[in-house]
């Protein structure tokens, strides 16, 4: 495990290549998938819908969380006096 991690740390380009390769592979595979089983219109008619959905979801969550935290919900570490 440790060797594996260190190996990837030493070869960042290779790690990136594998990473983006996998993502690309998944997208390409999804284009070949039969979407007629989809539950809704968007799934059936937008190619690689779930990729887009997943990415946008994450953006929404990440930025909402950031905004939420900056909107005053975050207090000091010892806010409750502990």
């Amino acid at each position: 495990m440790k060797q594996l991690i260190d190996f990837f740390k030493d070869h960042p380009t290779l790690a990136r290549l594998i990473f983006f390769g996998t993502i690309g592979g998944v997208v390409i595979w999804s284009l070949t998938t039969d979407t007629s089983h989809g539950h809704s219109w968007v799934e059936k008619h937008i190619p690689a819908f779930w990729s887009i959905f997943g990415f946008i979801s994450c953006l929404v969550l990440i930025f909402f969380a950031r905004w939420f935290s900056d909107s005053g919900i975050r207090k000091g570490d010892d806010y409750y006096g502990d």
Binding site: I23, S30, W50, S51, S57
Partner: peptide
Amino acid sequence: LQILAFTA
């Protein structure tokens, strides 16, 4: 897999 990949 799509969701996971794009989350990553």
